[in-house]
């Protein structure tokens, strides 16, 4: 499996977009920096700043979209150039193939959120908006890793669908719809969409100010939701990969 993951990274050589997309992690920390800079306040509650820079749109829209794009990039070549049959006769197992891609998404997601976390600290502490304090930084790191981990799992349905697509246009559209559906589904029912389940899990202890959820928070239900979606996505991917030769 480790070999397969390494090989996945070898396949990403010269794919500049993959590295450029990491820059998207800086967007919200930078906006938070501008926003608080505009009001010229100091001594802000760190959690309020981080809510803006890491737990807001980064978590809800940007990270899912970037990961969806990564899924598309990971699947595109092999589908487009009809390479799967060459891989099957190596042989590569379908499950190993699918999960090696997933682990790339997971690792990427963690990197993305770590950069977000570091940028949030730099943009808040250096200008003096927030007093440097280990406690809040640990809190930020912990939450960012949670977001990275669960969002990666929540993207499994997108990975499964992109595995069945030959082109990239539809995959990108599906990614967009998926990310926004998660965003807009949250007020209706938080436990239906995997991405809104991520919000539930992250805000389970109610320590992120301003992140209000419409329903009672049950983290285990949300984890179950993501789990069920992941299983369904994996099954779907196995069926499509078996059919597409």
């Amino acid at each position: 499996m480790l070999k397969l993951i390494q090989i996945e990274f070898m396949k990403l050589r010269r794919r500049k977009l993959v590295w450029l997309m990491l820059l998207a992690s800086l967007v919200m920390p930078f906006f938070a920096f501008l926003y608080y800079g505009y009001f010229g306040k100091t001594g802000i509650d760190p959690a309020a700043f981080y809510k803006w820079s890491a737990f807001g749109y980064t978590m809800l829209i940007i990270l899912p979209f970037v990961l969806g794009m990564l899924c598309t990039i990971l699947m595109y070549n092999e589908n487009r150039y009809d390479m799967l049959k060459q891989l099957w006769i190596v042989p590569v197992s379908r499950l190993g193939y699918f999960f090696s891609k997933f682990f790339v998404v997971l690792i990427y997601s963690v990197c993305f959120m770590l950069i977000t976390a570091i940028a949030s600290v730099l943009f808040s502490v250096l200008p003096g908006y927030v007093v440097f304090e280990w406690g809040s930084i640990f809190f930020l790191m912990k939450k960012c890793l949670e977001i990275a981990l669960f969002t990666a799992f929540a993207m499994l349905p997108v990975l499964a669908v992109t595995a069945s697509q030959k082109g990239y246009i539809l995959s990108v559209c599906i990614t967009l719809i998926y990310a926004f559906a998660g965003f807009f589904m949250t007020p209706i029912n938080m436990y239906l969409h995997p991405l809104s389940c991520v919000s539930v899990i992250v805000s389970r202890s109610g320590d992120i100010p301003g992140l209000t959820l419409p329903q009672a928070v049950h983290a285990p239900v949300a984890i179950l939701g993501i789990f069920l979606w992941s299983v369904a996505a994996t099954l779907f991917a196995m069926v499509t990969l078996n059919r597409r030769k």
């Binding site: 070999k3 397969l4 390494q6 090989i7 070898m10 396949k11 050589r13 010269r14 794919r15 070549n77 092999e78 487009r80 150039y81 009809d82 390479m83 049959k85 060459q86 891989l87 006769i89 190596v90 042989p91 590569v92």
Partner: peptide, 28 residues
């Protein structure tokens, strides 16, 4: 592992060189 095959026009990763492509398959 005991068979080598090409079926129709073989596809490879367009963003890699020929050597890199084969190295991937060799490692697999």
């Amino acid at each position: 592992p005991r068979i080598g095959a090409i079926i129709e026009t073989p596809g490879f990763y367009p963003n890699l060189t020929g050597t890199e492509n084969l190295e991937i398959f060799a490692r697999l």
